[in-house]
Write a protein that binds this DNA or RNA. Sequence first.
DNA 1: ACTTTTGCTAATAAAAAAGTGAGTCATGGC
DNA 2: GCCATGACTCACTTTTTTATTAGCAAAAGT
Lengths: 120, 120
Amino acid sequence: MAERKLNSTNYQNQVFLEEKCALNELIHLLSKRWLTEVMFSIEEGNVRFSNIKEDLKYISDNVLADRLKLLEKYKLIVRTEFAKESPTRVEYALTQTGETLSEWLGVLCNFAEKDMDFST
Amino acid sequence: MAERKLNSTNYQNQVFLEEKCALNELIHLLSKRWLTEVMFSIEEGNVRFSNIKEDLKYISDNVLADRLKLLEKYKLIVRTEFAKESPTRVEYALTQTGETLSEWLGVLCNFAEKDMDFST
DNA sequence: ACTTTTGCTAATAAAAAAGTGAGTCATGGC
DNA sequence: GCCATGACTCACTTTTTTATTAGCAAAAGT
């Protein structure tokens, strides 16, 4: 969506952390707003751009497009294009890695609900 | 550190997501830069402000102070002040919840290293 | 009396992320 | 020929997050 300044301390600190531990890369990815919800939405059967958009009612087109690209880039989803149809239909599906991640996020969600107190 | 604009779409979307699922709150917390590393550092025995600062060499004072406050707020760490000493010594320790979270993050870290490919 | 130490805070600037609104492209039906 | 549809893309603005720099308080050492 936008480019990062490679010589900023901000960027260099991020690189430092990501090199220290892959968890930082994963969290950085997961923290992109709507990203996990897009995954879950696909998992629940909203496999087309317009379906997801409808499901996550406040997401905007460009953010959804970006999140789909990220998920595809990191092989958490796969994109299938039906070019013969018109307008071209595109469908998304979770990969095996995506399914596994989704399960771990489920566990984490459970932890968040049971053990954490976000009420304040 | 700074205040959020309560009437912005940005904020309202965040609220929408956090109300939808506590996982979004947890991820939002975990995504604050250095936060998990501060936890891990404390866990490894760097229990004082200056120890952590030394361990995470590029973290700045105000960010560290903020992250410690957040961790304390969400009861992932406890702060103990030794006021009789001078200058006042302060020590941090993980709570039970903190320990549990740390374990789950370990699992996630393992997933990130084994199943994800961040090389591109 | 002055300096040092520890554990911070506050103001501001820089960078990154998210949101807004419009536009594109290749069909295919009217 | 004109409009609609689906899945996006682009330029720009706003909001949020991070980093930079400076400073503070209380007691103890010199």
